[in-house]
Design a protein around this nucleic acid. Structure first.
Length: 547
DNA sequence: AATCCATGGGACC
DNA sequence: TGGTCCCCCTGGAT
């Protein structure tokens, strides 16, 4: 059993570890009057003019007498945070669904905490009873699809031993308690999350971003990593000794026009072939027995564009799925790879961050695109012209974040449940938090969301354990482990949405702790006690490190 | 404490 | 095809 099994108070599961996270509290302030602290109008204009002069541009010819919107520079409204709620610029398209005519606040696809994916305008016209009623009616609607389980209780632990942001996570294929992590700097972390202090970091595996961590069947002591430094390495987990398998930049750095980076990687276990793809659209195959590059590089996406991801079909390993910056995901027969030989091209509105075959049957495809849509194709043997469903979800990202990827729950027999971090924040009791969403991809419904008041950063990297009810997340430099108690998991046909808010500081707990529950907080977003027990805080005062 | 910047991607010219 | 500017939620270095 992970998490040191002990009693329900989980003493072995230390939330804070030595040297971990002094700085993690920085952005937790939530002034309700941030706008009142803006400098006066004259200063704003002076600063703007100075900035413009600096850029050697003519000064503005108009003098605004009011505060201006920082997004559109017009007066009359202001975009930005009001407390923990972000107010959109009304002149811009909705930040969530990208359609004009409304702001994120009133987007029909808004993930609003009170009522799932129901359009937000109802927010102000209905009481919560209406939603309970509606939900109960909905529960009566029969479902054809197989059942799956959603979390009912979660427990959380975190650690910070990377020095840069986490870029990828992978559970060890056979050792249940081992999590591997890659970071922006090129380091590889190995963490036994049951024995908190048992962790290693290998600092010289790569020289920049680790984009993929994979294992090959047969030797689970060796871990394969690909990186934006253009190399694939095979590292012995025990010794940290690495073997260079593949190097796309043997000449060294000669500028961005020639520097090749590896973003996609997967292993065809049957054939012992490792596929990697670069930022110029090319696919490479490496024989894992001889560690030799085989064949010629093949252009699989628009020339000069980045191939973002690769995935081999779990049932038909010769089927290869790729996705790229050219707005396409493509299916290939790996035995007959050549230019223009793709079996299917799946069009997307923007860059495709990820594309995955479903983990059990391999028959479905789940993609995440920067157009803020998760797409599902229900059968690779069916019509692939258009997706079976498009789910609007906030995962637009800027360059400072690891791209969001919706990933299947490998344990869900119905191949419906997926997990993905959310970009847009919600106001959770005065704090802006970015939850991790569990989505039923068969209906598009949000069935659960988890977040921690100690982690105010965005959590783009998420990985579900292949066998256990555990979610690993990477949020900036922090790695989180969410344990979803198996005995508490419910099987449901129409899942009720669950929130898991970890409220770990005395400040945040103030007045909201369920005194009967041994320190477990039990609040809903408005600070009222909720009907069901939703969240558990495992951070006792003694377990916390205070600066 | 404020500012800079990383080698991103899109829109627009 | 290339240059320029813009961007809601970074975060380390200076």
């Amino acid at each position: 059993m992970p998490f040191a099994s002990s009693s329900s108070s989980t003493p072995g599961f230390v939330r804070r570890t030595a040297e971990s996270d002094e700085e993690s509290e920085t952005s937790s302030s939530d002034e309700e009057n941030g706008f009142e602290e803006e400098p006066p109008v004259e200063e704003v204009d002076a600063a703007e003019e100075a900035a413009l002069r600096k850029r050697k541009r003519p000064p503005p010819i108009t003098i605004s007498l009011k505060k201006v919107c920082k997004v559109c520079k017009e007066s009359g409204h202001e975009a930005g945070f009001r407390g923990a709620t972000y107010i959109d610029c009304p002149k811009k398209p909705c930040f969530l669904c990208k359609m004009p005519g409304h702001t994120t606040m009133f987007c029909p696809h808004r993930v609003a905490m009170e009522h799932g994916v129901i359009p937000a305008p109802e927010k102000n016209t209905k009481t919560s009873l209406d939603y309970i009623f509606k939900r109960q009616i909905n529960d009566k609607i029969p479902k054809i699809k197989p059942e799956f389980v959603i979390p009912d209780q979660v427990d959380c632990g975190l650690i910070r031993f990377h020095s840069r942001r986490i870029t990828c996570l992978e559970f060890h294929p056979t050792r249940n308690n081992i999590l591997l992590s890659g970071d922006k700097k090129g380091q590889l972390g190995i963490w036994n999350y049951v024995k908190q202090l048992e962790r290693t970091i290998y600092g010289s595996i790569h020289s920049c971003i680790v984009n993929n961590i994979k294992f090959s069947l047969g030797n689970d002591a060796m871990v394969y990593t690909s990186s934006s430094d253009g190399t694939v390495n095979c590292t012995d987990m025990e010794t940290g000794i690495k073997t260079l398998l593949f190097d796309l930049n043997p000449e060294g750095w000669n500028g961005p026009a020639t520097w090749r980076m590896l973003y996609g990687m997967d292993v065809n276990i049957e054939r012992s072939v490792l596929f990697v793809a670069d930022n110029f659209g090319y696919l490479y195959s490496v024989d894992m027995r001889s560690n030799k590059h085989t064949g010629e590089p093949i252009l699989i996406h628009k020339k000069g564009s980045k191939v973002v991801g690769l995935h081999c079909n779990p049932v038909l390993p010769d089927l290869l799925l790729s996705c790229g910056n050219d707005h396409f995901a493509r299916i290939w027969d790996a035995r007959r790879l050549n230019i223009d030989s793709s079996l299917a091209s799946l069009a997307h509105g923007r860059v495709v961050n990820s594309a995955y075959f479903s983990p059990l049957s391999g028959n479905k495809i789940l993609t995440t695109s920067q157009d803020n849509r998760i797409r599902v194709w229900d059968s690779i043997f069916g019509n692939l012209e258009s997706p079976s469903r498009e789910i609007v979800h906030s995962h637009d990202f800027n360059r400072h974040l690891t791209p969001f990827r919706a990933e299947w729950d490998p344990k869900d027999p119905s191949e419906s449940l997926a997990v993905i971090g959310r970009y847009i924040s919600e106001n959770y009791d005065g704090v802006a938090l970015h939850p991790i969403d569990f989505i039923d991809t068969s209906t598009g419904k949000l069935v659960a969301e988890v977040m921690d008041t100690d982690v105010t950063t965005i959590t783009p990297v998420n990985k579900l354990h292949p066998r256990e009810y555990i979610l690993a997340s990477g949020s900036s430099r922090t790695i989180l482990i969410w344990k979803i108690k198996p005995e508490k998991w419910k099987t449901k046909t129409e899942p009720e949405r669950k929130q898991f808010i970890f409220n770990n500081t005395e400040k945040k707990r103030h007045g909201k702790v369920d005194s009967d529950s041994d320190g477990d907080s039990d609040i809903d977003p408005k600070g009222r006690r909720s009907k069901t027990k939703k969240c558990q805080s495992k951070c006792t005062k003694s377990g916390m490190k205070k600066s």
